[in-house]
């Protein structure tokens, strides 16, 4: 029930506080009532028709680097 998917914002309708997002190849209308300062091209986390949060590109890259670094330490002698 807590599953949520990252989706790209394609268009924002300020009057209704709604947005069109792309989930892979699927387009969906979602509410922006729970988030502030969303821009077109941002990624937001979608859950039951609402954007819950923005996804930080910077932090995503940092986490991926941490995975790779953990892998490097595995190769070092104990």
């Amino acid at each position: 029930m807590c599953l949520a998917l990252p989706a790209k914002v394609l268009a924002i309708y300020e009057l209704t506080d709604m947005a069109i997002v792309a989930l892979g190849g699927v387009r969906k209308e979602v509410s922006l009532a729970l988030v502030d300062d969303v821009q077109v091209d941002d990624f937001v986390l979608i859950h039951v028709g609402y954007a819950l949060n923005k996804v930080s590109e910077e932090e995503a890259e940092r986490t991926l680097r941490l995975f790779a670094e953990a892998g490097l330490t595995a190769g070092e002698p104990a």
Binding site: L5, P6, K8, L23, G24, F43, V55, A60, L64, F67, A68, A70, G71, L72, T73, A74, G75, A78
Partner: peptide, 23 residues
């Protein structure tokens, strides 16, 4: 899909597995 596939990569999983076994 962005932010999904990157977090399922096979080679990184193998590396993390090795790091855990070592830790």
């Amino acid at each position: 899909m962005k932010y999904i596939e990157e977090f399922r990569q096979h080679d990184l999983a193998q590396q993390l597995s090795a790091a855990i076994r070592k830790a």
